[in-house]
Design a binder for these strands. Structure first.
Length: 266
DNA sequence: AAGATCAGCAACCGCCTGACC
DNA sequence: TGGTCAGGCGGTTGCTGATCT
């Protein structure tokens, strides 16, 4: 069987389960001060009763300053689907093309989505066109819009130094999401103003990128000259091979996310 | 109002791989 | 060259809160 990591063995007393704010604080401040050199030594140096692996996981999936949280946008979702088609369950590789998202987050998202789709398939094959019973009780739903989580809007995160995670942060997912959404009205509408004045479109399967304002529709946005349209996006996600260039969501934290390399969406 | 059901998420577990001795 | 260790990854589980009956 798998070798038990020395740092995780029973010899040392290590805590398990959810991380407390104090532990987060210790880990975050330690890494902020000294950086990451050796995960196995970090627990001791930071005064944590955790194994190094656990610290790494916590950092990678939650404390990392470049992480954005909240619901996946429609474009992120499409990209994940396309990448998954091309790469399979290589979550880390998929995550590498989605800045601000951890592999764990993407994996969870995919599993939830897959589960949903399987249920729908099952239901549709047995009961014709009947909606699956579970579909109306979901919180977010495939529309990517309403729910307890914020809408699929790319909110630029504050700079890492402005984002001292532990102080006042709440580990609960909903709170984590809302803590980065400064505009509460964005939770209900399909558009929101981006810091640069462009319009962020979210919900109803619409693109979540920063796009030119569209008075009539939230589902199409860009032009080939300066961006794309749904057809372009669809072609992109349909053609997985297209994704193997320098083509991924750009994690620019100072502005709305755009596609990299020649296909700007704004 | 209370219990059942479900979705979302955090975290653990086991395995693999590469670096080092 | 083989053994050990640490980092990393994917799969899975369990908890929590929202929603429905």
């Amino acid at each position: 069987m798998g070798r038990v990591h020395p740092c995780c063995s029973e010899e040392k007393k290590v805590r398990k389960g959810l991380w407390s704010p104090e532990e987060d604080e210790r880990l975050a401040s330690h890494i902020a001060r000294f950086g990451v050199s050796c995960w196995s030594s970090i627990p001791e140096l930071a005064g944590l009763q955790r194994c190094g692996k656990s610290c790494r996981l916590r950092w990678m999936n939650y404390l990392r300053p470049d992480l954005k949280r909240g619901r996946f946008s429609q474009q992120e979702e499409d990209l994940i689907v396309a990448l998954h088609k091309a790469l399979g369950n290589s979550w880390s590789q998929i995550a590498a093309r989605l800045p601000g998202r951890s592999d764990n987050e993407i994996k969870n998202f995919w599993n939830a989505r897959l589960r949903k789709k399987l249920r729908q398939k099952e239901a549709s094959s047995t009961a014709g066109s009947k909606e699956p019973a579970a579909s109306h009780r979901r919180r977010g739903g495939e529309d990517g819009g309403s729910g307890t989580h914020p809408p699929a809007v790319f909110n630029p995160l504050p700079a890492p130094e402005n984002r001292p995670r532990p102080a006042g942060y709440v580990a609960a997912p909903a709170a984590a999401g809302s803590s980065y959404d400064s505009d509460p009205s964005a939770a209900t509408g399909s558009t929101a103003a981006a810091p640069d004045g462009s319009v962020l479109v979210a919900g109803n399967g619409a693109a979540a990128d920063s796009v030119a304002p569209s008075p009539t529709s939230t589902s199409s946005a860009c032009t080939e000259a300066g961006g794309c349209d749904d057809g372009f996006l669809k072609a992109m996600v349909d053609d997985a091979s297209f994704l193997f260039g320098d083509f991924y969501l750009d994690g620019n934290q100072d502005g709305p996310i755009s596609f990299w390399e020649g296909h700007a969406f704004s």
